[in-house]
Design a protein around this nucleic acid. Sequence first.
RNA 1: GCACAGGUGGGUGAGUGGUUAAAGCCGACAGACUGUAAAUCUGUUCCUCCUAGCGAGGUACGGAGGUUCGAAUCCUCCCCUGUGCA
Length: 321
Amino acid sequence: MALNPAEKIINEPLLVVILGPTGSGKTALSIALAEKFSGEVVNCDSVAMYREFDVGTAKPTLAERAKVQHHFFDCVDPRQEVTAGDYARQARNILAEIGARHHLPIVAGGTGLYLRALLEGLFAGPQRSEELRHRLRERSSERGSRYLHRILKRLDPAAAAKVHANDEAKLIRAIEVCLSSRQRMSELWQQGRDPLRGFRILRIGLDPARSALYERINARARRMFETGLIQETQRLLQEYGKDARPLLSLGYRQAVEFLRGELSREAAIEAAQQGHRNYAKRQMTWFRREPDVRWLRGFGDDGFVREQAIKIVIEGLGLRS
RNA sequence: GCACAGGUGGGUGAGUGGUUAAAGCCGACAGACUGUAAAUCUGUUCCUCCUAGCGAGGUACGGAGGUUCGAAUCCUCCCCUGUGCA
């Protein structure tokens, strides 16, 4: 006898997603939940995937990683560049493995695009093409800032209407998609995404008070500098060169500027704090649009937040039996 | 005490008689995001009102007066800050 749709949904295993801005305590909460429900944590944070980027990424400690199984930390060589597509493909495999073990998968992280790529999928676009991008960037600097937008308008007016003329990064991708696939990006979009199947998704969002969050971010960014971020950056700079992608990310970028003598140590710290605060704000803008989030007003390491999160997960699991 | 320099919106800093509620930058807030995403980009940012507009009114460039049709911009006095000389 065939299952009716409701039963089918109920029989799907649960997938817990913990989202929130940087510094909101996603790591602490994910570990607490993993311990409680025999779960495994799946990182969804682009920079934390890079090996040897430790001090500036606030990865879970080795002790924490010994307590529960973690995935997707330290899995990429700093010379490589991960993309949302790579991440989504690999993370889906891991999710399937965790499911096969009958453990609870807990996705935790702050990279909104990666999370969306994992959960909802990307459109069927081509992968990036370095030479094409290089050529586009060169021509754009020769022909002026509106050049890329004019090109996109010609290739795909509908896409051009959605990308701002100043947003070089997105213009380049859109043009790349049109040229590499020989199709309009807007038409590829219409074919839809390939969402993750086989899980019931439970999204838990952390939303601490803004001022408290900013204080924490400031303290943490300073601590990174005090506990070896500069030395780590120097090492990475020597090993992988200044063009290594993750050296452009928060904290590392400022440490590089300090090492070059462009910023005093204190100015670098303040710039890093500022960068992290602004990033947290952008993350909130992204996550507010995420559907069906159970928002908790506080930090992931707050006792009452943890209790509420546990209750929500029990509720979610309870539906299964 | 004397001599310069200077006091501008949350910060910085332009502006030296009239399209100036006052550039730019920063911050703050809000937003976008379909393979660089810890990236990239956008909007708003004195108050009040409405028919919500390149709309109406009010308040504003240390303080108080003054000149002028008109002042952040010119004059006088006062207060404060920095530098130099005593």
